[in-house]
Amino acid sequence: MPHDRLVAMTGVRGVLRSLAGRRDAAVLERPTQAARREPLALPGRASERRAWADAASGARRPSVALHGVSKTYGNGKRALVDVDLLVPEGDFVFLVGPSGAGKSTLIKLLVRDELPTSGSVFIAGQDLARLKRRHVPRLRRQIGIVFQDFKLLPARTVRENVAFALEVTGTPGRQIRPRVDRLLALVGLSDQASQRPAQLSGGEQQRTAIARAMVHDPRVVIADEPTGNLDPLISWEIIQLLLRINEMGTTVLMATHNAEVVTALRKRVIALEEGRIVRDEVGGYHRDY
């Protein structure tokens, strides 16, 4: 039985135990009740205001900042409309909203796969519109990206998939192995290092992808529906891993449709609808009130 199945069997409770001591932990056990118990999280866009205030006072630098960002594609589709968003360093933020609400566009802007039509995007203090083409790779190394479909190379083993990200960025050969070993230990895949993606469960594949996203010790991890292809228990495992990464100081931005997870964790939730931020508060997947 694969390792992650065993973890999965201990399930949510196992995850919870690992989160013991966190404010959210109690909430996790009975999410719906918890939601009722705490009907009023933070009203309006208070958390955003707090984030701006934090940033202004210099308490925590924003690792992601969007100012009046709009994105209109060539075909006239308005994917984002006047989006303001500030994510302080070390935060864990959910990005929710129906398909086509602009989540993917937002992520593309953050990794400079697209440039905004107007407004500006900052990652770790860098204005992406002013970033020269040759400096884009440096930006990408400060961002770890995780996808719903894992994007692993099928012909390479787990170890090689993770090492690939180091190879192609010019890391000297002798540094690669220890770093990969450390990351595989972090995601709990040391024993599966020489297996190929096809031999792994979905959860293990996603953990491989997360290990790869972490190779350059990024400041921000952006996860685009990382649990979209996984069953609920395995999803929790992935969330647990992202929380652990967040605890280690990395900002995590996770786009998801997983209502259960979002509601249970009581993290900051940014809801997009038709390209606008319609809600930005600590709370559940749906409006609590």
């Binding site: 990794v111 040759r134 790779p137 990408r140 990206i145 690939f164 990200a165 960025t169 996203a213």
Partner: peptide, 17 residues
């Protein structure tokens, strides 16, 4: 293609691509 996409995402410079 897939490799190139991944290379770009993990920050490989144009030269490596």
């Amino acid at each position: 293609r897939d490799e190139i996409e991944i290379m770009r995402l993990v920050g490989a410079s144009d030269g490596f691509v």
